[in-house]
Design a protein around this nucleic acid. Structure first.
Length: 768
DNA sequence: CTCTTCCAGCTTTTT
DNA sequence: GCTGGAAGAG
């Protein structure tokens, strides 16, 4: 097979030994995806039928990308029948198929986190519990934790450790909330995210014939990012692979950053206990980053205790040192970083898409955005509210959900009074009371609304009846009409479009665009399904919509933009230049992880992930003060900077005064000998001041501030001496002289900061 | 029932 | 500093 020639020795080993249990430890940038895709391609080439291969990933994006690459290797037809996808999407597929065995219908709804939280809030109200003590977030966290450890509500109540923890936290009734939560989900024909894994486990446990069927079916199982699996996922993999034992898991314990959502790093550390005859492959050569970056990353990860021994190395050239930028305020940090990006983009003629700014928390993005906008640097930002979490999108989807599954309680409550129909809380309370008494869903009450005459006043009954008829009318052609047609009918008929049309604010317009975009997506779905002769009906569209996220949407990677995202969401990606910003104590590592050594190790792995995203250059930045929750804080620079050997750093001045403790651990030997406080470890960059600055500073000061809202781009030939113009990086300036002809035409420009620059007009974008 | 105002909360995130 | 949710006024 030709494919195998494109791999190094270790990769080849991992790809060609397809039988038996294998653990592939794949360091950052070592070709992990390559191994997985080639291994699957290899299986297909050997004649293994695609539908006998199960490949599990953590994001839809990873699955889609792998499928694409496999198609390129062995042809589309071969790849299309692979069982490849996220844990949740694969198991929801199985669950829909087997739903009736567990007492659900094949059209069950999947609640997202917000739905789950709302349900918990409703239960808290029913139980008359104080929601300042029982916070929906915390309660959901406990339930989620239990589910991920396969503890059902009954078992929770029996579990002394859990119960005593809850009592100690002054929340003794969590088990009760859990119980009602589960009852109501079942009644609404609903599973939450954790159920998709938990219920599959129950299915495989209670129905041995089902277990056998899937064990037989999946001759080969592959798992990506194994270090991020939780117990529920771990057990599913273990069960399903028991028969053929052809299980290949790929991961990197050094990149485990999701323990806060139940991931168990020990799954990868203890693989050998479950599969004593396993084969171990280590991919330690990094192809992505410069030598300096890999060495620096190694400095960091060495400080962690629990890990599989390995040493990442790079044969790329050492490259630049890691530059450290210091700012006095968070605002200045933004200005410095964008300035640096402008400079690099300009002098090295790099594309904006070659840059990424990574931060620890989403809240940091705002200031950076402002700075980028000021400099007219295009950017795209990940995280924050995703498309499918927007209110208007969720509203319309709630209509779809209710039409497909009228028992969906959260969808019902969301739209019963949207757009406004004058059906308020007290009416819904009455409906709820009837529903609880008769042990039926809200929808069932609505269907027999005329029986409540007298209990609810006549005008309201009419309104409720109208709503009921509206939804029933939408549902008429559910099985015959395609998803796109019915979706458009709902968008119009529900009054959503009209409601949004009344709003002329930019936000309102954008909401309408989002609705249009959703309708386009459905249209696309229907057309594709029609072409490929698969199900093009609304229930089929809805099946996976909760499992979709923004990350899956193709943002047009070809657009020349800077990328802004959290370190978490950068995992798996790479960029030539990476800025890691906000490197301060209490932020990175986060404040809440500072006390726990285990949490601190995870933060360190997170920093390791950040560093290893970079191919050529890393720039780390910290600020001496920062707004946090409305208050100014001034934490010292992150201890992680000091954990990198000084020889890899450029421009870091240790601040002894600020934090004795980790300064003492990290300052250099030479520094201690010299006993000079605040002596730079590496020489700081000295910015060369042009000679002209002295005489021209007065002129420079007289250059007016540009009106940024009113800029027109200048043609190179229109630029003449004494002209005042604006440069996107350096700001306002005055042309001192022009020389050169044609493509060599250059301008010497005096800028407001007193510097004179020579600009090649062919490249420079200048504005009037 | 609806609109406004006030108050609490706040890592990370996929599914 | 910003957001979402709940309470209170109209």
């Amino acid at each position: 097979m030709d494919l195998l020639n494109e791999l190094n020795t270790e990769q080849l080993e991992a790809v060609s030994n397809t039988e038996g249990p294998s653990l592939v430890i794949a360091g950052a940038g070592s070709g992990k995806t390559r191994v997985l895709t080639y291994r699957i391609a290899n299986l297909l080439c050997k004649g293994v039928p695609a539908n006998k291969i199960l490949a599990l990933t953590f994001t839809n994006k990873a699955a889609a990308e792998m499928k694409k690459r496999i198609s390129q290797l062995v042809g589309f037809e071969n790849a299309t029948n692979l069982w490849m996808g996220t844990f949740h999407s694969i198991f929801s597929r199985i669950l829909r198929y087997e739903a009736e065995k567990l007492g659900y219908t094949p059209n069950f709804t999947i609640y997202d986190t917000q739905d789950s939280k709302n349900l918990i809030k409703a239960i808290l109200k029913d139980l008359q519990l104080d929601d300042t003590i029982y916070k929906a977030n915390d309660v959901l966290g406990r339930i989620s934790m239990a589910k991920n450890n396969l503890i059902v509500a009954d078992a929770y109540q029996q579990n002394e450790r859990l119960i005593s923890t809850d009592i100690a936290a002054q929340k003794p009734r969590i088990h009760e909330i859990y119980k009602y939560y589960q009852i109501r989900c079942k009644k609404s024909d609903v599973m939450d995210f954790d159920d998709l894994l938990l219920q599959t486990n129950i299915l495989l446990r209670d129905f041995p014939d089902v277990l056998t069927k899937y064990q037989e079916k999946f001759g080969y199982i592959l798992v990506d990012e194994y270090q991020d699996t939780n117990y529920s996922q771990y057990l599913l993999i273990k069960r399903l692979s028991e028969r053929h034992r052809n299980l290949c898991v790929v991961g990197d314990d050094a990149q485990s950053i999701y323990s806060f959502r139940g991931a168990r790093i020990e799954n990868i550390l203890k693989f050998r206990d479950d599969y004593p005859n396993y084969k171990l492959y280590k991919l330690e050569r990094n192809y992505r980053s410069s030598g300096t970056i890999v060495d620096a990353a190694n400095c960091i990860i060495e400080k962690n205790k629990e890990q599989i021994p390995k040493k990442l190395y790079s044969e790329n050239e050492a490259g630049e040192k890691i530059k450290i930028l210091k700012s006095l305020t968070d605002k200045e940090e933004g200005v410095q970083i964008t300035g640096e990006i402008s400079k690099l983009a300009y002098y090295e003629q790099q594309n904006y898409s070659d840059f990424a700014i990574l931060y620890r928390t989403n809240a940091q993005s705002r200031i950076l955005e402002e700075a980028l906008r000021k400099r007219n640097i295009p950017y795209r930002i990940f995280g924050g509210l995703s498309f499918y979490q927007r209110k208007e999108v969720k509203d319309l989807i709630a209509y779809f959900r209710l039409v497909v599954n009228p028992n969906d309680e959260e969808a019902f409550k969301r739209i019963i009074n949207y757009p406004k129909r004058s059906i308020g809380d007290s009416t819904i309370e009455k409906l709820r009371a009837v529903a609880v008494k008769n042990e039926v869903s809200l929808w069932a009450v609505l269907c027999n609304i005329d029986q409540l005459n007298g209990y609810i006043n006549g005008a309201t009954i009419t309104k409720l009846d109208n709503f009921c008829k509206l939804i029933t009318r939408f549902a008429l052609n559910l099985e015959t009409e395609n998803a796109s047609d019915i979706a458009c009918r709902i968008a119009e008929g529900s009054g959503i479009i009209e409601d949004l049309s009344n709003d002329d604010t930019p936000e309102g317009v954008s909401r309408k665009e989002n609705i249009q975009e959703l309708l386009n997506a459905i249209k696309d779905f229907s057309e594709t399904a029609y072409k490929e002769d698969t199900n093009d009906k609304l229930p089929a569209f809805l099946e996976n919509v909760t499992l979709l996220t923004d990350q899956d949407k193709d943002y047009g990677a070809d657009i020349n933009c800077i990328t802004l995202m959290t370190v978490h969401s950068a995992k798996g990606l790479e960029f030539p230049n990476v800025f890691i910003v906000g490197m301060e104590e209490e932020l990175f590592p986060s404040k809440q992880s500072a006390e726990s050594p285990v949490a601190l190790e995870e933060e360190r792995r997170l920093f390791y992930v950040a560093l290893t995203r970079a191919q050529k250059r890393v720039i780390i930045s910290y600020s001496c003060s920062r707004y946090k929750n409305g208050k100014v804080t001034s934490p010292p620079p992150s201890r992680f900077i000091g954990e990198i050997k000084a020889e890899y750093l450029d421009g870091f001045v240790m601040q002894r005064r600020d934090n004795q403790e980790y300064f003492a651990q990290t300052r250099s030997f030479a520094d201690r000998l010299n006993q000079q406080p605040n002596r730079p470890i590496a020489s700081p960059r000295i910015s060369a001041r042009p000679a002209e600055s002295a005489f021209s500073s007065a002129t420079a000061a007289r250059i007016p501030e540009p009106d940024r809202s009113n800029l027109t781009e200048l043609d190179a030939n229109d630029i003449i001496p004494d002209m005042v113009l604006v440069h996107p990086i350096f700001g306002a300036g005055k042309v001192v002289s022009i020389d050169g002809l044609g493509v060599n035409r250059k301008a010497r420009v005096l800028f407001k900061n007193g510097e004179v620059k020579t600009l090649l007009l062919k490249f420079a974008k200048l504005y009037k």
